[in-house]
Design a protein around this nucleic acid. Structure first.
Lengths: 124, 124
DNA sequence: GTACCACTTAGAGTCCACTCCAAGTCAAGC
DNA sequence: GCTTGACTTGGAGTGGACTCTAAGTGGTAC
């Protein structure tokens, strides 16, 4: 697959795909003889994973480190697990914060709903 | 309250507090005669709200707009509600993405747990 | 009254994650 | 074989959200 096809398929710009490869969020992508990127099935899986993890807010640095570990063999299973576990914990606490904030937004929205109807804003 | 007290109380740096005020995430803070910030109860409530919303990822721009609306009177109830509703929706979808990613991390972590024990990594 | 520390502003600098640009190469259609 | 459009690289630029620096002022302890 060409970079433009992969870009469309995963909703990640070509520039970003090149950037991800350059900084190591993606392992080196397969190339044609003339040097064009030619994403294999495996390359695409990495793209999909990177897109998913980035959309959840995992930092570039964590992803490059994970890719680095994956490329350095079977002695890194524990490190990889620990890395993922740490990111999971970050995610858990971020979700908790966001849920609390959402409750707060809900409360404020309900007050404004009433205010829109009555013309008077009341926090009760 | 002085800026250093507020900074400690809410875990927001003094620089950030000044920045928030400058860009309008906080309405103008009360001052002493000599020009020092002297946060009132009300100022502190704004600080707390800003901290909460920012920690959940709401953009500065949305917060300044909300503050602007709050300072322009009772005709803006509907706009304020709509703004909060929009941010709430962003939050909902971001949380969904993060929860999906977390499931995926959980799966990967469980595979690595096994791999750490058995020495063999298997995706099943 | 002076040392010292907290405060002030304006503006520059930093970090992250892209995003864009320039200059050049490759390949398919005519 | 030439045009056109997709691709390449290296490097510069951008946007968001701070964070730091310099130069100066305020107020309390000795």
């Amino acid at each position: 697959m060409t970079i433009s096809e992969v870009s469309k398929k995963y909703g990640i710009s070509q520039d970003t795909l090149r950037y991800y490869e350059r900084v190591g969020v993606l392992p080196p992508v397969h190339r044609t003889k003339s040097g064009f990127r030619d994403y294999t099935e495996k390359d695409c899986e990495w793209v999909e994973l990177a897109g998913c993890m980035r959309s959840a807010g995992l930092p570039i640095e964590a992803l490059t480190e994970y890719v680095r570990l994956c490329q350095s063999g079977d002695e890194t299973f524990r490190e990889r697990r620990d890395l993922l576990l740490k990111q999971r914990q970050q995610l858990v606490s971020q979700i908790r914060i966001m849920e609390e904030t959402m409750e707060r937004l809900d409360y404020k929205i309900s007050c404004y709903d009433k205010a829109v109807k009555t013309g008077k804003l009341v926090w009760y």
